[in-house]
């Protein structure tokens, strides 16, 4: 037999409209087994709408979509049985403890009580909440709630994990703990789809990602390839002064102005820095590696999104 592994998700010309607004505007993508696939984009780009369509809670307007080879319009329960979903909004059940949340949720998946009990304890351990086992969720910190939601998404040993902004609003410690757990899940061969507008998060976690804006996919690739292709290796930042600007133009070095700094994307920061120091008398110069953030801002623009 051929060695092709069937895609976990396959979307062709996926569209979602709300009234006259196209939230998702004809996107196509495929997610392979064992891969961490990211959706990046500013607010309102259509990421969450896409997640909800994949998670079978929001019907698509048009296009083809297969999750595990099944159509969400036809077999939502069968697909959802194999999904783990971390929603953007915290929707833990306040009437239950941490353990109670996991146990109650297991029941929705038809997991026998014995197995559910065992799994719940295991997962509390996994997200480091065993000490909070019998605490009601209202008493948890934001980071603990997100961890519990992650644990809840794992009660059914999902074949696909869908994370919508998994670390939104968390402090650095809490974010790192979640990342660490996700890395572990990734290493165990889980397929993960996530949205984020934290670019460091995407860079750290994703094997492959798409950048979305206005419902469309702008680019697709691995974080490193995208940085290399769209920005280059390094960025030189220099304080914006009339001297520097005219000097750069004279030396035909392409640049971009952001606020009161000038950014120069380059393959060799050393060469650019030399030109600056020799000819432009710059005030402040900073060189740094190019990141996904540079790609993102370049493609999605710097305009503030509501």
């Amino acid at each position: 037999m051929g060695a092709t592994i069937p895609d976990i998700i396959e979307a062709i010309h996926l569209e979602k409209t709300f009234g006259s607004i196209k939230a998702v505007d004809g996107i196509s993508f495929a997610v392979k087994k064992g891969e961490v696939f990211g959706f990046l984009g500013p607010n309102g780009a259509g990421k969450t709408s896409t997640m909800k369509i994949i998670a079978c809670v929001s019907p698509r307007t048009s296009g083809t979509l297969r999750v595990f080879g099944m159509d969400p319009d036809i077999s939502p329960a069968e697909i959802k049985q194999r999904l783990g979903v971390v929603p953007q909004e915290t929707n833990l059940d306040p009437d239950f403890t941490c353990y109670g949340n996991l146990f109650t949720y297991s029941r929705y998946f038809d997991i026998p009580p014995d197995a559910a009990q065992k799994k719940a304890e295991e997962l509390l351990e996994f997200v480091q909440l065993s000490e909070k086992r019998d605490v009601t969720v209202e008493k948890l910190s934001g980071g603990m709630k997100r961890r519990l939601i992650l644990a809840r998404a794992l009660v059914n040993n999902p074949d696909l994990l869908i994370l919508d902004e998994p670390t939104i609003g968390l402090d650095p410690q809490a974010r790192h703990l979640i990342w660490e757990r996700l890395k572990l899940l990734q290493a165990q061969g889980n397929t993960i789809v996530l949205t984020t507008h934290y670019l460091d998060e995407a860079e750290r976690l994703c094997d492959r990602l798409v950048i979305m804006d206005n419902g469309k996919i702008l680019v697709e690739g691995s974080p490193a390839d995208l940085v290399k292709k769209y920005v280059g290796n390094e960025i030189v930042e220099v304080e914006k002064t009339p001297d520097v600007l005219s000097c750069l133009e004279k030396n035909r070095i392409p640049f971009e102005i952001t606020g009161d700094t000038v950014q120069i994307a380059t393959e060799s920061s050393r060469d650019v820095a030399r030109v600056l120091f020799d000819h432009c008398s710059p005030h402040k110069v900073l060189t740094r590696p190019a990141t996904l953030e540079d790609v993102f801002l370049k493609l999605a623009g710097r305009k503030l999104r509501e």
Partner: peptide
């Protein structure tokens, strides 16, 4: 307020 229905329909429940 509790978003319980949202949480439930993410499972096989419709």
């Amino acid at each position: 307020y509790q978003k319980s229905f949202d949480a439930m329909i993410a499972t096989p429940l419709s």
